[in-house]
Nucleic acid binder design. Structure first.
Length: 441
RNA sequence: GCAAGGGUUGGGGAGUGGUUAAACCCAGCAGACUGUAAAUCUGCCGCUUUACGGCUUCACAGGUUCGAAUCCUGUCCCUUGCACCA
């Protein structure tokens, strides 16, 4: 074992972290000897990136760390078509308004990761809508389409899979690979972007772009390809399941959709076997730190040192110090002690930012409000029957106390210090209910 | 356009006149055990103020029946073959 904690270049680093799946010939050499500009595309099919995108984001971060210039491409144009990769069925097209909204949201989510003010290699965000929406059909077919044979296009796995299915593939999605190749070409020509990074599912699309650039611009003066690509592996957990595919869908990077607390909890609950690999992939911690964590995991697994480090680091980068503080505070309150001992102020503080529901004083007066109704509006139950069943199984709590009666009603006396209620479903799902302010009545 | 096959509860997929709110698997939820893990086990998993009750469901609209997801008619959609086009 050497004491050397620094890697010479980004590829060594990525390899050590298990984050390099494939690279075009010569790519590693260039990454080690030159400072390049690399881009990674993000699909605006949803309003938020999720943790599945984290590998790619961290890839850009590491590239920047080693002096390369990262470019995040948000697919406002390609999003209008839809990538068939990894899809069993045709996508439903999104409206332009939705896409534009998503593009903005994603742009904002990428910002905490990258340094946009670096002197020599500032990060930037581009939107392929800027060129794709204005390119005219005939020009595109002549300049780009001419370089692709349908034979190759059909041999793509993402396309082939769909051929064998009943649903087939539309021409629209079939064309997708051309668009992504065109993006690379545009970025190469306009901004001298010579690298594309992406998940292994994007490898075919990446090579398509590399190929297109070679066909149009040929090799450089030394006979080397002008464009390169690297791919990250698909992250799976120790059960072979796709990363993030649990607990009601993948956590997002949007604090409104996934509170810092929930994000923190997601990573804290990672299985032992996954903890160290994930730390390597998703944090900037160095070899020494990670080596120590690995030892800690095997020596004292119950202390979950790696899980804690992982959850802390990820929450910190995505939601900042205040987000992490909040996540830790909530965790401490819920798992460290008894929340029924907390004051209303503390509860509110701890749960601020997670889902909050309001009730009016009227609703709680007289007969009171049925617990099941409140639980549904607070989002911890799907229907009256669902809530009742959960209560019967002992899974519903009000202010830290288990509810035994499915007909439980909520009255003003139940409010903690006259203004708050805490509903809990199962072990980890908390929801805050506030008494609405009465406005000038 | 013609012909054949098909559309079942989140997904997959049984079920072809009654005991079917609908097998089974996966996913999901709750509980036990634990380390807020994994594995395992138990219960739940259309709606309903608690129900051996009521209601609404098997693409949609009608119809036949004491009774239909199951039969008939029409409509929509999907798949496959043929034709048309080229």
């Amino acid at each position: 074992m050497t004491t050397n904690t620094e890697f010479q270049n980004v590829t060594e680093d990525l390899k050590w972290r298990g984050a390099l799946f494939d690279a075009t010939p010569g790519a590693e050499h260039i990454l080690a000897t030159e400072k390049i500009t690399a881009y990674n595309g993000f699909d605006p099919t949803a309003s938020s990136l999720h943790i599945g995108n984290l590998v790619a984001i961290m890839g850009l971060v590491r590239l920047q760390q080693y002096g390369h210039t990262p470019v995040a491409l948000v697919g406002g144009g390609t999003g209008m078509i839809g990538d068939p990769s990894g899809r069993a069925d045709e996508r439903t097209l999104l409206s332009v308004t939705d896409i534009d909204y998503n593009v903005e949201a994603i742009r904002a989510q990428l910002e905490p990761f990258l340094d946009f003010n670096a002197k020599s290699n500032p990060a930037s965000v581009v939107n392929n809508a800027d060129w794709l929406r204005t390119t005219d059909l005939l020009t595109f077919l002549r300049d780009v389409g001419k370089h692709f044979t349908v034979n190759t296009m059909m041999s793509r796995d993402s396309v082939k899979d769909r051929f064998s299915r009943d649903s087939g593939i539309s021409f629209t999605e079939f064309s997708y690979q051309l668009l992504q190749a065109y993006d690379f070409l545009k970025l190469y020509e306009n901004d001298n972007v010579g690298f594309q990074a992406g998940g292994s599912d994007q490898w075919g699309n990446i090579l398509g772009g590399v190929d297109l650039i070679r066909r149009i611009h040929g090799a450089d003066s030394e006979g080397r390809p002008r464009a390169h690509g690297i791919a990250y592996p698909l992250v799976v957990n120790s059960n072979g399941e796709k990363f993030g595919k649990s607990i009601g869908g993948a956590p997002t990077l949007d604090p409104k959709l996934t509170s810092p607390y929930k994000l923190y909890q997601f990573f804290l609950n990672v299985a032992d076997a996954d903890a160290v690999p994930y730390v390597k992939l998703f944090t900037m911690l160095n070899q020494v730190r990670i080596g120590a964590l690995a030892e800690a995991v095997s020596a004292e697994p119950h202390k979950r040192a790696a899980q804690k480090a992982l959850a802390e680091q990820v929450t910190l980068t995505i939601h900042g110090q205040s987000g992490l503080d909040q996540a830790l505070k909530v965790t401490q309150a819920f798992f460290g002690g008894d929340i029924s001992g907390l004051s209303a102020d503390q509860m509110e503080d701890v749960l601020d930012g997670s889902s909050v529901t309001e009730v009016t004083r009227d609703q709680l007066s007289g007969e009171g409000l049925r617990f099941s109704e409140l639980a549904i509006s607070a989002g911890v139950g799907k229907s009256g029957g669902d809530v009742r069943r959960t209560i019967e199984q002992g899974g519903m709590y009000l202010n830290g106390e288990q509810i035994g009666d499915a007909n439980r009603t909520i009255k003003t006396e139940d409010l903690v210090e006259g203004r708050l209620l805490i509903i809990r479903r199962g072990r980890k799902n908390y929801s805050l209910v506030k008494l609405a302010e009465q406005l000038g009545l």
